[in-house]
Design a protein around this nucleic acid. Structure first.
Lengths: 190, 190
DNA sequence: CGCCGGATTGATCAGTTTCAAGGCATGTGG
DNA sequence: CCACATGCCTTGAAACTGATCAATCCGGCG
């Protein structure tokens, strides 16, 4: 296990995929870039999550710590040899990739078809499952990270949160702490 | 192997995932819906492509034929039992899922960060690899399908194609046949 | 204290959507 | 054989959502 401070790169897109990672503590983001710097975050990883798992020889995204992250590191070759002998392990590896795929597919729907407000609502519900600390949503990432995850600008994110607060859907306690009011009611998933 | 006529459903989202499919001829689309009917197509499948491969018990998307499609069908349980005994097969199954994931990640970047014109360009390059018939791009899907794949409206798709034609990037020969002029030049990937 | 990154808020701008009309091909029934 | 309906596509004009540009605020820290 190794430690990455905030904004330190864990691995870069198209680097040789020699290791697989599992989060112990902290949060990691994975993203892709366009040549002019536009960024799309494909996922945030929380404690327990596995990332960097590739059947090909190169990573398909860049991974960076959002906040100080403790990460379990495993040699890819070692993991593959275990999988070659253990059917259950092989199946588990496949499942991790399939979970990532399922998440990506839902996110395609969000990016392709939801409005700014709907994106924020979906995001809050997702984070509510993962970053809940003593009944309060504790966001580890900046507005820019949220924006790059949701395909918006940081201003739009800020405004949407302000609007939801005004409507009484949530309460902001500083920019990083949020209390949701009626999770799953008006904040509809679909 | 079985045959599906245009617009016939192969399987529905959240149905039990009892079968795995491989395209022999024709084209299939996979998509997700919002409750109000907004649709996001996650992928088009062409001859040789595998779809409906899930480690969970239910499909995560709906699949429909775009045009008459000949499809090889395989019982999921049978495939799993082969994979349980054959390491190579298990690895191949994992690879299919990982390929879908890689495609989805690229598409997240497209939906989250590219302009309408860039989306169309990326789409044409993608189709140029897959639907090329005698040096000419042969689109099997409607403008609405393209729009729902790219997170746009069909009008925007139509206008973007018209603009690219005006700029001499391509030549339309009816709405479904396209000749690209300088693939990979101005039509930049990144 | 003053700086700096992050966040909020306001005003304007622009790309895309929406609404609407018309064209073109195909197919069907009189 | 032609009239007409239908589905798909194109094109135009107006409306709107979210982006851009800009100013200010806030909290932590050197």
């Amino acid at each position: 296990t190794s430690i990455y401070r905030a904004n330190k790169e864990v691995f870069g897109e198209s680097e040789p995929a020699d290791f697989v990672f599992r989060i112990i503590r902290g949060v990691v983001r994975a993203y892709k870039l366009l040549s002019d710097g536009r960024r799309q975050i494909t996922a945030f990883y929380f404690p327990g999550d596995v990332f960097g798992l590739e059947p090909t020889d190169h990573y398909s995204v860049t991974a960076e710590a959002v906040v100080t992250a403790h990460v379990m590191v495993c040699k890819r070759r070692q993991m593959l040899s275990v999988a070659a002998q253990n059917v259950g392990a092989a199946r588990e590896i496949w499942s991790f990739t399939a979970q990532s795929l399922a998440h990506a597919e839902s996110h395609l729907l969000l990016l392709g078809r939801k409005t700014a407000l709907e994106r924020i609502e979906s995001f809050l519900l997702e984070m509510n499952e993962r970053a809940l600390v003593s009944g309060q949503l504790n966001l580890p990432m900046t507005r820019r990270d949220i924006a790059d995850y949701l395909g918006l600008t940081l201003e739009t994110v800020s405004r949407a949160l302000a609007q939801l607060e005004e409507e009484g859907e949530l309460q902001l306690d500083g920019p990083r702490k949020i209390m949701l009011r009626r999770s799953g009611d008006t904040l509809s998933l679909a």
